[in-house]
Amino acid sequence: MITGYLFYMLAFLLILFSLGVLMHSSPLFSSLNLVGSMIVLSAMYYLLQVPFIAAVQLIVYAGAVMVLFVMVMMMFDLKHEIKIFSGGFISNAIKCGLAGFFAFTIGATAFMSTEMISGSAKVKTEVLSVKSMAQLLFKDYLIEFEVLGVILLLVAVGAVALSRIKGGTHAS
């Protein structure tokens, strides 16, 4: 009951913030809207009984990634854009139409399929424990986990290399 109300409230906020990302003429406000949608998503994860993922969402997305976005945005000091959308009217209309068709298709499919709606016996009732997640992470997904570590290392090296280029694109 209360979960339903919370879901609709959060869904409304989430769509509002996402539209803010799309529509706002100032990139800074777009990013602040994205921060809002990240926080709302975190609340939604809490609603879906994965509090650990909710907290990680806050730490990683809202607390680190988006802070970087906002910080870069402030360093560039970008003003309101006069023309925020690229392309002409017709191509944009086609793009919007395609995205709308995509959402409609998935949405219709989701509503047609009635097998896995709530009330079925499989719905998880207790909070997902960190222990069971860790066991999956370090047993079944161990190789992926290690590969991810290597990717992160490469990314760190790459980011440092990119920001330290002397000459080349840097010389202006």
């Binding site: 769509i15 996402s18 799309l22 925020i84 919007c96 995205a99 709308g100 959402a103 949405g107 709606i117």
Partner: peptide, 24 residues
């Protein structure tokens, strides 16, 4: 589940539109 999937589809299309339409 279908409510969540529908919401996810909407957010995904907004993301796609952001990528396709924005200049920045």
């Amino acid at each position: 589940l279908n409510h969540y999937l529908f919401l996810s589809a909407i957010i995904f299309s907004i993301g796609i539109l952001t990528v396709l339409l924005r200049k920045n």
